[in-house]
Simulated assay, not measured.
Amino acid sequence: MQEGRSKNWLALIAFVCSVNLSAQEVAVRGGFLEDSLVIGQNVNFWISATYPPSQEMVFPDSLYAFTPFEISGKKFFPTEIRNNLAYDSTIYTLQSFEIDKVQYLKLPATILTGGDSTIIETSLDSIFLTELAPVVTDTTTLKTNLDYQLVDTEFNYPLMYYILGGVIILTIVLLLIFGKRIIKWFKLRRLRGQYEQFSEVFSGYIKRLSVDPDPDLAEKALVLWKRYQQRLDKIPFSVFTTKEILRQDFTQELEEPLKSVDRVVYGKRVQENVFQDFQQIEDFTQHRYAKKIEEIKDGK
């Protein structure tokens, strides 16, 4: 059933892409497959592009901010070449937890040309929120319930206030005396825990890439690194391109490994030594982590 639905979606996208192709070689289109949504349930947004095969087209990955939506999955359709044009399409499965009655979304597609890039966006599409709960109006009546209900015995609120007040005063005194040490200890403990968790998973990716340099596995490792580095340096690495990352004054040593990883991840090129690039990225992160530890110990 799911496979048939995906084929129907792909056919719809291919039909839309085929309209007015003679007018321009590069075309990007997209929109919602559904007319309405329910809070927390999946809806689908398709994006497709037609362009000369000599160029390289990149769609948003899972790190892109789909605001007001959150991504829960995506389905990628392999590139097809027809009439000397390349056809790419992807369907994103999204969820929304916003209560706006009409919600909007448009997605960018990036054309990679040498060291530069060009972004083309789909048209802004809208989808309507379906309300499951009825709206309460002035004419809404409440059903009266006169059944006897058991209630708890009276609680000793004055005693509770005394105990609560004592706990608050004791906490304030302890914070005034040991507050900075306590805060520093918690920061160091949290930082070490986050790094150890990241390092264990990231090292596992590197070992697997040394045996099987799979582009999809490299993408997972890159996503993991960006998310951790964003948490460590408080800089939105997860939404930065490589060019934007290298604009930071402390990331120059990442230029070669990140560009090499981009060729593997976005170009889907198998590169035997890609694990070495990730080892350099791991060394960079280890250095940044050690610097953050020293800053916390110095009270910065």
Score class of each variant (00 low, 15 high):
I81V: 15
I13H: 02
D100T: 07
D249R: 07
F186K: 04
V28F: 03
T139A: 13
T241I: 05
L254H: 00
V28D: 00
D88R: 15
R29E: 05
R231M: 09
E25F: 02
S54I: 14
E98N: 08
I119H: 04
V223G: 00
T139Y: 08
V58P: 01
F15P: 00
V261T: 13
Y195N: 09
L246G: 05
Q230P: 01
W225Q: 06
I235S: 03
F250A: 01
S117K: 15
L258P: 01
N44S: 15
R5W: 11
T139R: 11
T141G: 09
K292P: 13
I111G: 00
T285E: 01
Q2R: 15
V264C: 09
Q229N: 10
E56N: 13
M160N: 02
F128C: 03
L175D: 01
E272I: 02
T137Q: 04
Y266A: 07
E131D: 11
V211W: 08
D298K: 12
T93Y: 02
V167W: 09
K300H: 06
D147M: 15
G193A: 11
S89V: 03
Q229L: 12
E80F: 15
F15E: 11
Y92L: 03
N83Y: 05
L112S: 11
I111H: 00
F59C: 10
Q103D: 07
F237V: 02
N8A: 15
Q149A: 00
F284V: 06
L146Q: 05
T122R: 10
F59Y: 01
I168N: 11
E121S: 14
L217N: 12
K234H: 06
F278I: 08
F66M: 10
L10G: 07
S96G: 14
M1I: 03
Q286M: 06
T113H: 07
E219F: 09
I293G: 07
T137C: 05
K180R: 15
F97N: 12
R288A: 07
I281L: 14
E98D: 11
P78Y: 13
S260P: 00
S238G: 02
L224P: 01
I120G: 00
A14Q: 12
A133Y: 09
I296L: 14
N44D: 10
G299P: 10
Q271I: 12
F237W: 10
L94T: 03
F275G: 07
M160Y: 09
F250Q: 07
K207H: 08
T122D: 01
I182V: 12
T241G: 09
A23I: 11
Y228V: 01
N84I: 13
I169H: 07
F45Q: 06
S126V: 11
Y51C: 10
R263G: 02
R5E: 14
F155A: 07
A86G: 03
R231I: 03
Y228N: 03
L12K: 12
F186Q: 06
R208S: 15
I183V: 13
Y64W: 14
F198T: 05
S54V: 14
L142N: 04
P78H: 10
S54M: 13
A27M: 09
V43R: 02
Y161S: 04
R247K: 13
D125G: 05
N83I: 04
